[in-house]
Amino acid sequence: MAELTDKMRKEVRAIIIEFFAEECEVEQSEINDSTHIFDDLDGDSLMFLELIEIFKKKYSLNIELKAIGKYSVKHPVRTVGELLTMQLMIIEHENNITNL
């Protein structure tokens, strides 16, 4: 578990935007918090899983997919902003996100 800093928040946002820009072949400037991952970027679950893994490694997180699944039932992730929120929650709470 990590305490979130402004630097970390900016870093996570930058990684997400860079990732989708590269994977979905769009300009970074075209991606913002309200960008819909599936409708606007044509993103898919494989990208979603890959991004989770990137953060898992970067911040040495103890997080299981089933915990993310449980969190997503209560807090659906459709936009880049929602994904950013979820990633920050994962970094902060790891497997305890199921209790949020």
Binding site: L46, F48, L65, K66, I68, G69, V77
Partner: peptide, 23 residues
């Protein structure tokens, strides 16, 4: 295998992130 899992999630009418089914 990935496609198989995704297609079965769909056949069950769920998604990996909204059901108790694990990959």
């Amino acid at each position: 295998s990935f496609c198989c899992k995704e297609s079965l999630f769909k056949a069950f009418g769920v998604s990996w992130n909204n059901s108790k089914i694990q990959w």
